[in-house]
Structure formats: C-alpha cells, structure tokens
C-alpha cells in the first residue's frame, strides 16, 4: 500500500491540522507516514500546504511531485495544483471557494464538495478541513473515516477536546456528501 496526498488552501483553513490528523491516523493504523508542512514566512503570504505520504513500506521521499490525490481548499490551490495529479489521480475541490469550471483535466477523477458551506451548516466554517478529510476517506479508499476520527484526540489540543464530537460529525458529513459509507 502506498498513498500520497497534497492538501492546500488559505492559512486559517486548518490545512496543517488536517494533514497532521491524517498522518496520526495512518500511524495508528500501523503504516509508515511522513507529514511535511509549509512553515514560517511561507504561511504569511496566506497559503498553507502540506504533503502526507502513507505506506506499508519504508517511505523514501517526503517530497512528492505527483501526488495521487490533491485536495484544493481554495481557488488558487485548484489553479496551481490540478496539474500535479497523475492521470487517473483524484482531485477533491472545495466548491464553496473554488470554481469547478476551472478544472481543465479530463483524465482524472474530480469531486466538488462544498466544504465551507457544509461546515457552516454544522455551525462553524473552520470545520471545512474535517469535511475535506471525510470526503478524502470516502473517495481515496486509503484510510477509513473511522480511523481518521479515531486520531482526533491525539491532534486536538486539550482545551478544544470538547469539540471532538463536532469534528467527527464534520468528517461524517464529508463522507456522506462524497457518496456515503
């Protein structure tokens, strides 16, 4: 098993938390995993990105040219990264903030999920990252939504523990929108 994913969006959308959660879940599942975030002044320009690689073998490069899946959480990410997915790859787009009409690729699987709107319906726009992960779990088949939800406790800070059930609901909402269990 080998799977790599690239998550990109605005700073403040919880991109890095989503990547870290995925990495934690992969580790708890017994896989090898690398999580490489953008950091420092890179983020002050308003863009946050991260790469997660999961494998049951030793992982070579934590840097990936052509990730199996790209999750584009905003319009600039869609424009910039849709080309990087290889043919047959997966592109999951936050259709609340990115325009699906701008998808140029015919040779990949594209799914629009109104992540921000679904998150707002759940009560907080900041849950869009969890909706994204739910959709990712459903569509990539690399890891289950339960496994992702199970890792929430490890990455959510102590003072936000009470928000875990809400995050779980957002993950499940992503699963549901992307086609159910």
């Amino acid at each position: 098993m080998y799977y790599d994913v690239f998550i990109s969006g605005f700073g403040g959308q919880g991109i890095l938390l989503a990547g870290q959660l995925l990495a934690e879940a992969a580790m708890e599942k017994g896989l090898n995993v690398t999580f490489f975030p953008s950091y420092g002044v890179e983020m002050r320009g308003g863009t946050a990105r991260c790469t997660v690689v999961m494998s049951d073998n030793e992982i070579g490069s934590p840097i990936v040219d052509n990730p199996r899946c790209v999750i584009a959480m905003n319009q600039p990410s869609l424009v910039r990264y849709q080309e990087s997915t290889p043919p047959g790859g997966l592109l999951i787009v936050n259709s609340s903030l990115a325009n699906l009409d701008d998808v140029k690729r015919q040779d990949i699987e594209v799914h629009g999920v109104p992540m921000s709107e679904l998150a707002v319906e759940l009560g907080n726009a900041r849950l869009s990252n969890m909706v994204a992960l739910g959709a990712f779990a459903r569509l990539s088949g690399s890891i289950s939504s339960d496994e992702i939800a199970g890792a929430l406790e490890a990455v959510i800070s102590e003072r936000n523990r009470s928000l875990i059930p809400l995050n779980e609901r957002a993950i499940m909402e992503g699963v549901r929108y992307a086609g159910g269990k």
Partner: peptide, 10 residues
Amino acid sequence: DAVLGQMQEP
C-alpha cells in the same frame, strides 16, 4: 535541514 526539522514521522 529544514525538511528534516519541519517534517513529522513516527
């Protein structure tokens, strides 16, 4: 290097 410093692995 910066990748090794910033990257997370188990």
